[in-house]
Computed example of a mutant assay.
Amino acid sequence: MRMLMESYSTIVEAQMVRFYSSLNERDRRRYAALETTKLGHGGIQYISTLLGLHRKTIVRGMTELNSEEQLTTNRIRKKGGEEEV
């Protein structure tokens, strides 16, 4: 039998959403990825729904968290407005 993931309390969820909205684009992805990692199975769907973002965005954030190069960059976008990959 599979264990169901427990969700955060309503108060914690509200704080998470408020904090998330204060972050820039890159940090939002990474924060969502970090929270997903803490939750384990079912975390991507839960955080995606809570924060209103696509699961691919969370997966991208997870990739960034695992990349030393991505964590050391200070830029959010490349020159000319193109998003860094």
Rank of each mutant, 00 (worst) to 15 (best):
M1Y: 02
R2A: 14
M3F: 08
M5T: 02
M5Y: 08
S7E: 09
S7A: 15
Y8V: 03
T10V: 11
T10D: 01
I11R: 06
V12I: 13
V12R: 07
V12M: 12
E13M: 13
Q15P: 00
Q15I: 09
V17T: 14
V17F: 03
V17R: 13
V17L: 14
Y20Q: 07
S22D: 00
S22V: 04
S22F: 07
L23P: 00
L23W: 11
N24A: 08
E25Q: 06
R26F: 06
D27W: 15
D27C: 13
D27E: 15
D27L: 15
R28V: 06
R28G: 03
R30C: 10
Y31T: 08
Y31S: 12
Y31I: 07
L34T: 00
T36F: 02
T37L: 10
T37I: 12
K38G: 11
L39F: 09
L39G: 07
G42R: 01
I44C: 11
I44L: 14
L50Q: 06
L50G: 02
L51D: 01
G52H: 09
L53H: 00
R55L: 04
K56G: 14
I58W: 01
V59H: 10
R60W: 02
G61Y: 04
M62R: 02
M62F: 00
M62T: 11
T63D: 15
E64L: 10
E64P: 01
E68P: 01
E68D: 04
Q70A: 08
L71A: 06
L71Q: 13
T73G: 03
T73E: 15
T73H: 01
N74A: 00
I76F: 12
R77T: 12
R77F: 10
K79A: 10
G80D: 15
E82P: 00
E82C: 03
E83R: 07
E84K: 13
E84C: 08
V85C: 07
